[in-house]
């Protein structure tokens, strides 16, 4: 029996029948489907986590002003804020997620997890979690396998691309992946991981992709911070034993259905939502290349 990550039900069944731990099922999938060795996989995860940590560090130390000017050192501002709305840990989560995502917007090195537009969520959640609970790297790598398993299923059942399913597909998936990782690291079982995923997607459902001027900046950066917060609130509920009423596979089906019926102006085209506002149009004029040639209709290229 091969595991293909077509559904959460299949994942649970595979672990039960084969008597393997959930993250081992993901490891076996990668070995079987991609012919990778265990050593290669662990090394790949270690490298990804290292890049995530570096991104957080860079976002808090280097100048993070994007070419458009819309992103302007937000992570540092949160870190140095005189008011802490929910205490230092929450503040740290927000600035870590912002930091990694700002690095992405400012042409720095990141891990697309699952996409570049959502590249602040996993780093924000994992670095804050590790720092707070002193979790060893090895446990984090196992949690990243759990996250990858969650991502694989969402990709098959719905989508992880903003152009296909809206922002819920990118930041929603990243938050679900991160939430599952938190539950795993703090001792939750597979059904609690599934609850965390289901609750997270319920909170992110329907989010449109409406990037101002088409850039991966507004609202992407702030949404990475809020998605990181939702990952933690969902993990808190799941670990406390709150069950998802709608089973996780059905929640992901709903996400796919919402994505499929979303109008294209809400799918990364920068034609709707925030991207269509008066201010966004003014920003577009400033940041888009205007000096372009328009060909006559019958031009042969």
């Amino acid at each position: 029996m091969d595991i293909l990550f077509d559904s959460f039900e299949e994942w649970a069944k595979y672990c039960e029948v084969q008597k393997v731990l959930p993250h081992i099922a993901v490891l076996e999938y990668e070995m079987k489907q991609k012919n990778r060795t265990k050593e290669e996989i662990w090394a790949g995860l270690a490298r990804a986590f290292e890049v995530m940590r570096e991104a957080v560090k860079t976002g808090l130390s280097d100048d993070m002003r994007s070419r458009s000017g819309m992103i302007d050192n937000g992570a540092k501002r949160v870190k140095n804020a005189s008011v802490s709305v929910l205490g230092e840990n929450f503040q740290q989560l927000v600035y870590n997620a912002l930091a990694a995502k700002e690095v992405n917007s400012c042409m720095g090195r990141i891990v697309a997890a699952p996409t570049a537009g959502a590249s602040g969520i996993m780093p924000g959640v994992l670095t804050t979690l590790q720092n707070l609970h002193k979790i060893p790297n090895e446990k984090i790598y196992e949690a990243m396998l759990i996250s990858a398993g969650i991502g694989l299923i969402i990709e098959r059942k719905a989508s992880i691309a903003g152009a296909v399913g809206g922002c819920q597909a990118e930041t929603g998936t990243a938050a679900a992946m991160a939430s599952g990782a938190v539950v795993y690291c703090l001792g939750g079982d597979l059904s609690q991981i599934f609850d965390a995923v289901a609750i997270t997607i319920q909170c992110m459902l329907g989010l449109i992709c409406d990037p101002v001027a088409g850039l991966v900046e507004v609202p992407c950066v702030v949404r990475n911070a809020s998605a990181a917060a939702i990952a933690f609130s969902s993990a808190q509920m799941a670990l406390a034993g709150l069950k998802t009423v709608i089973p996780v596979d059905e929640v992901i089906d709903a996400m796919g259905e919402v994505g499929a019926s979303m109008e294209s102006k809400y799918k990364e085209t920068a034609l709707g939502g925030l991207a269509a506002t008066k201010t966004a149009k003014m920003i577009e004029k400033r940041v888009l290349v205007s000096d372009i040639e328009i060909l006559p209709d019958d031009t042969q290229l």
Binding site: Q33, I110, A112, G117, S147
Partner: peptide, 22 residues
């Protein structure tokens, strides 16, 4: 073809966009 776990956590790239940059 099935995706890799390193399509979910990866690739490591320079931002901001996989299509417009990488």
């Amino acid at each position: 073809e099935r995706s890799s776990i390193f399509d979910m956590i990866g690739p490591v790239m320079i931002g901001p966009s996989s299509s417009h940059t990488a």
